[in-house]
Write a protein that binds this DNA or RNA. Structure first.
Lengths: 159, 159
DNA sequence: GCACATTTACTCGGATACTATATGTCCGAGTTCAAACGG
DNA sequence: CCGTTTGAACTCGGACATATAGTATCCGAGTAAATGTGC
């Protein structure tokens, strides 16, 4: 799985912790964890295309959550970065070669594909059950100093 | 996810359907679905290293299941091909840069990593609940012609 | 006819190229703000 | 003193290289069987 997934998740949680407040530039968000700023911007663009964050150009511009964090699940973020298609894609190899089963109107589904999809549904459901707001709330509860430090650092004129 | 996973899963089911019987060469197994024979052999080597299949060299050689199919879960096969490490690996980026939390003895776990691992456990559990014998049994039950055709084709002197 | 050495054919196994995806970087389009200018 | 114009700085956004992992292939080591030979 891509490394940018972790970046995007932390980013969304940080944006949730920063609310309410002005938009945050990508470079500032990246500098908080010493990430490559421009490539991180690329991931943010993917989040924007998915409608998770919105971008404001120009000075005082940057990124902001497009929805309240209660409406953003971890699954949404992962799908925005990694792509919506499932990790396991059945190529229907059983239809090829001498062992090909009934060619066209075969109603028997591929049992392996079925099992794989079932497992992936379990994964997706687990991720869809956790929202960005849940994570942010737990962070506020367990380590109250972290959100304050984050807001101060984001508000700092320059680093 | 790698394409070889699908190949390995179908291969294990076919080996289960072929039992009892002589060992099957990799090329024969690959030809059944018109797969690249040599690369498919590579995947079989991975299965052998994981102890799922055993290889016999020389004439009359080939591959055979190393355990009864009831003891082989889909998770075992996937882990053998894709590797045992989890798909999402937390790089602990929160420890880096100005936003670094308490450096060393920080007991607070990364909540994002926790959620991701939880979801991945759900995925692994779903795959571990299905065995190769289950799939093979369903195939025998739903499409009785398929196992017979497979055994005949594997026993054919040459194709 | 039988035992043995030899040859042969067949198998896996690891080492070696090629391709697609993910990672990292660069420069241009657009927008807002601030300052300078003129009335 | 106020409105307008002009400029500049800052932002995102897509287009362009590089590194890594997955895909595909080749050739050599090893083994069992079959064959030919001598007794």
């Amino acid at each position: 799985m891509g490394e940018g997934v972790e970046w995007a998740l932390h980013c969304c949680v940080n944006l949730a912790l920063a609310e309410p407040g002005p938009a945050v530039p990508a470079a500032r968000l990246a500098g908080y964890y010493d990430l490559p700023p421009v490539y991180f911007n690329k991931q943010l663009q993917a989040l924007a295309r998915a409608g998770i964050v919105e971008s404001l150009p120009g000075p005082r511009g940057g990124f902001r959550l497009a929805r309240p964090p209660e409406r953003i699940t971890l699954m949404d973020v992962v799908a925005a970065i990694e792509g919506p298609e499932p990790a396991f894609r059945c190529a229907e190899i059983r239809r090829r070669g001498p062992g090909a089963t009934a060619p066209a109107g075969d109603p028997a589904p591929c049992l392996i594909d079925e099992a794989m999809r079932s497992a992936e549904v379990a994964w997706r459901s687990a991720l869809a059950a956790r929202t960005v707001a849940d994570i942010a709330g737990s962070v506020r509860d367990r380590t109250p100093g972290v959100p304050d430090r984050l807001r101060r650092w984001l508000a700092a004129p320059r680093a």
